[in-house]
Design a protein around this nucleic acid. Structure first.
Lengths: 293, 293
DNA sequence: CATGATACCTGACTTTTGTCAGATACCAGG
DNA sequence: CCTGGTATCTGACAAAAGTCAGGTATCATG
């Protein structure tokens, strides 16, 4: 009786196909074939290596080569050998190329702004889009090591704090917690990892070290739209690898029973519960894991 | 600090572009160019008129003609003149064509099923997809007059009853309400309209007549994912036009203050409140509108 | 410094898609 | 039956995209 899941998915797929088609079509308006426009955009978005672009767009190397030459002849990009490997080449936008890239970006941005403006509840629409994007983009999630003071990291942290505030009966005040100094979460003492999905941060985790063989996992957070996809396990695996590379043999962490999914995660991935090892007012569970290789 | 709406929209767009691209690519696996596959699918989905397909896919008439001939030569379709207009032609799938169409459908269905199966909360993902599809597909919404006993109509009605049950403090029992006989909502006495978005019903409204110049509007319902898009106004405008065509001069309806958006809609679109005109236990507001042209 | 692997380029295609100016057959209305 | 309009087809192109077998540097390694 009710539309079945497959039909609903496919309705979504049709709606979205026509949206994608319309955007592609609008790209044609700048007098350049779609292939060339796509390459220019990939370069503008920081995919400067020829191989990276080719891989991203799924192009044959011959075609790619010609498209690049076309853009070069138009004066939009310059190609220079990669400093570390003279076989490879990296593309850079010229001023003219940057202007053209910006124009393409404006086309996309306008479309987005219009779609959002026409909707009565943009925030609801965006939340739905985040969820869909996380679900469809799960295979393209990448991990980046960043400075915890960088903007994307600060965004994750502030969402993390806000969530603790909602989850803890007492609320959450960072200043009462043992907030690590940024330097403790930067190599060589520690690390801070972001999970990025199509350019947006959707999760983070910190490794707080003091130079010794023991370090602490802090600030594990997954965006609500990306929960249930196994991302926390992947983030933890990444940070463990990173910790091992930094010469750390034992990891510790503290958490709170108001975060049952976190407690379950640690119990299920080789962590053993240990006695309290700090006097932070918030945590009530403490874990340890040996990771020496 | 937080990712801005445009970035979020564009992340969604990227995620979805690659999904669409992957599906297109999988279509190539059946040894037929994408254009031909798309035409075959459009025909399989009931777009049998050549002009309808051309319009839907945005193809040039020359290209369309050649693609059709290709499919005909492959033995997948037959082309016959339209019975009412021998200039136009209608395409029909042969058995072989139907088999091929089914194979394409299976590719799409499998992809959908896989994406849903990999997600921890398929229902949440689908709800998000419904919302997005309604938002992006609002320009493609069509209206269809159907038998109120047809499956899509029954789906809308059951959702409508379920919603009344949630909204009314007393719950809602259809059998206590003045449930119109199906014949009252079928021409020439009345009508039943569905709003369809990319093949799925997302709203309905009934016109219940007894053959006289007065008829009643019943069962106005909009799917949650499509609310706020002005669809109720469009549905009402459609049913008024239909009523006028059936020779009806005055419309009446009853509603309940537990449905404030409905009451506001009627107040804002030319309806005047009148005295109770039936003894149905649920309604507490009654409206009338003259529509004679 | 030979050797195989790698990153990209070139040339020579084919296929697919898009475009456009007629041509053909048919329809609707006087 | 003429006339203007409509639906589709045809032919002749052109542009875009994709393919593939070499070719040229360059790298990493023993």
């Amino acid at each position: 009786m009710t539309p079945d899941p497959i039909s609903r998915y496919r309705r979504f797929s049709r709606a979205v196909t026509s949206e994608v088609g319309a955007l592609d079509h609008s790209f044609l308006g700048r007098g350049r074939p779609l292939g060339a426009a796509r390459v220019l955009n990939a370069i503008g978005h920081g995919r400067t290596g020829v191989a990276a672009v080719r891989d991203y767009l799924g192009l044959d190397s011959g075609l790619m080569s010609r498209l690049l030459r076309g853009l070069e002849e138009e004066g939009l990009i310059t190609l220079a050998p990669h400093p570390d490997d003279a076989r490879a080449r990296i593309a850079t936008l010229t001023d003219k190329g940057r202007a053209e890239f910006t124009a393409y970006e404006a086309l996309s941005d306008d479309r987005a702004a219009q779609a959002l403006a026409r909707h009565p509840h943009p925030e609801a629409l965006l939340a739905a889009m985040d969820l869909v994007a996380s679900a469809l983009g799960r295979d393209r999630i990448t991990f980046e090591e960043v400075d915890p003071r960088a903007e994307a990291a600060r965004y994750c942290l502030s969402e993390y704090y806000a969530e603790l505030g909602r989850r803890f009966a007492t609320g959450f005040d960072v200043s009462l917690s043992r907030d690590p100094e940024a330097g403790d979460m930067i190599a060589p003492r520690g690390a801070f990892l972001l999970a990025m999905s199509d350019g947006l941060p959707i999760g983070c985790v910190g490794l707080k070290g003091q130079g010794g063989a023991v370090a602490e996992i802090k600030r594990l957070w997954i965006a609500p739209s990306a929960r249930g996809l196994g991302l926390s396990k992947r983030l933890m695996a990444q940070i463990e690898t990173r910790a091992r590379a930094l010469g750390i043999g034992t990891l510790r962490l503290d958490t709170n029973s108001a975060l049952p999914e976190a407690v379950a995660l640690y119990r299920g991935t080789g962590w053993t519960e240990i006695a309290r090892f700090n006097d932070d007012p918030y945590p009530d569970h403490f874990f340890e894991k040996r990771i020496a290789s």
